[in-house]
């Protein structure tokens, strides 16, 4: 006869140990990239709102502004009413300054998070992040769910990670097949004339890199990069 209370205790203990071990480097990277992508979207839309608002005060400056990331700095440090601008009341001015302050702190947090992600990617997957860049590395890792699965993937699977929708459309309806997923945003692929070929070469080397990283191999990513460059010319 099995003692059920004892069994429950042992099962709970096992679960507790597994929960504690559960925070792996993979999960850290995945959480960081998820937060970073959300922040990108939020900062963009908040900046657009601030632009609308500050546009009443200083329409000339806002029209010529290309990079919205400096907007909060402009509002905080150089708040001035231009020729065609409206003079705001004290309440409204305070509101705008507060808003700009929040946006500025969000931007600094985003920079901090980017540095963190870069560091942890370089530590966790040195070969892969050297070749792919930390953002693509993190996105591919998120799609693969763990480095173990990424290391066991074929290069053609890595090539199409992030293009699942197009791939399944291709399988289902026979539409054109996708040639690249997340690795399209890589410089080598983006600036290449034959993007399909570049994606193929890059994903080939990336799959090798993932295996090197998972099995604690040497650093060979720079050699691979040179090989890709030679083949693309």
């Amino acid at each position: 006869m099995v003692d059920i209370d004892l069994l429950k205790k042992s099962n709970m203990d096992d679960a507790r140990v597994k929960l504690r071990k559960g925070l792996t480097d993979d999960l850290l990277v995945i959480n960081a990239i998820n937060t970073l992508e959300d922040l990108d979207v939020q900062i963009n839309s908040l900046s657009m709102r601030l632009k609308d608002w500050y546009g009443f005060v200083n329409p000339e400056l806002v029209r010529d502004l290309k990079d919205y990331s400096v907007l909060s700095k402009v509002v905080l440090e150089g708040f001035e009413v231009s020729e065609f601008g409206v003079v705001l009341g004290k309440k409204e001015k305070d509101l705008l300054l507060n808003y700009a302050g929040v946006l500025k702190s969000l931007l600094s947090f985003k920079n901090y998070l980017e540095d963190y992600l870069k560091n942890i990617c370089e530590k966790h997957m040195p070969n892969f992040s050297y070749l792919a860049g930390f953002r693509i590395t993190a996105k591919l890792l998120r799609e693969a769910r763990s480095l173990k699965r990424l290391a066991t993937m074929q290069s053609s699977t890595i090539q199409l990670l992030g293009a699942e929708k197009a791939l399944f459309r291709h399988i289902k309806t026979g539409a054109k097949n996708p040639k690249y997923g997340y690795i399209l945003s890589h410089e080598l692929v983006k600036n290449s004339r034959d993007k399909g070929k570049a994606a193929r070469l890059l994903s080939d080397k990336l799959s090798l890199c993932a295996r090197l990283d998972y099995f604690m191999g040497d650093f060979k990513a720079s050699e691979y990069e040179a090989e890709i460059m030679a083949k693309l010319k």
């Binding site: 069994l7 429950k8 099962n11 709970m12 096992d14 679960a15």
Partner: peptide, 10 residues
Amino acid sequence: KEKSNMHPLI
């Protein structure tokens, strides 16, 4: 933890 007749198995 709340319900004694449930066992977690991860």
